[in-house]
Amino acid sequence: MTRLPLLSLLAVSLCAYAAAAQSTDPAKPAPGNPAGSPSDTRETVPGVPAPGQANVPDRAFLRAAALGGRAEVQFGKLAETKAASEAVQNFARRMIHDHSAANDRLSSLGAHVNVALPPDQLDPDHKAIRARLDSESGANFDKEYVNTQIADHQATAQLFEYEIGSGQDAQLKAFASDELPVIFEHLQMARALSATLAAETMASASRSPN
């Protein structure tokens, strides 16, 4: 066993936390597969990673979730003013609200696991989406926004599931578990919106003379 035991003093101060991380409550984050914890993981007690000990999936999750969450807010702000349909505007407001709250929690978790979040700008993937959103207007903008929201929330749901299964830090996993049902709610809303927009396009096409 080469995993470094924490200084006992520190361990005492972390007692309350360790109790939570070791919870036998099935609603709390479940222990990960220790095969996914690198050797230099510090442990409060054997088998329980010390708070803030992130493994590779934790880091990958943190980065992708931070980039995605910020893009959601940015696109939401754009859509709030630019969307033609009121339903899309409302959806955008909901995205701003929910993702802002999640982003705040994620920032504090970044500090907790001592991982610097990427700089506050769009990554190339989301930049490409932004460029397309900028170039569209009216009903086409609405469609583009809603469809990219569907794709983004699909990927996000899988990402959060990935963290729940492969992550190591209990707080990050708890964050992913708490947010996942909300992400699915967003996905369902976006899918419903997309269907509504498509139906409206059909209806207006059949109304037009040719």
Binding site: P34, A35, G36, S37, P38, S39, T41, N55, V56, P57, A60, A64, L67, G68, D123, D125, A128, I129, R132, N147, T148, A151, D152, Q154, A155, Q158, L159, Y162, S166
Partner: peptide, 19 residues
């Protein structure tokens, strides 16, 4: 649309990270 893809061990079984 482009969206960030997931890490490979989302699908593939990762090799153990410890002895």
């Amino acid at each position: 649309a482009f969206a960030a893809s997931l890490p490979p061990d989302g699908s593939y079984r990762p090799l153990p990270a410890a002895p």
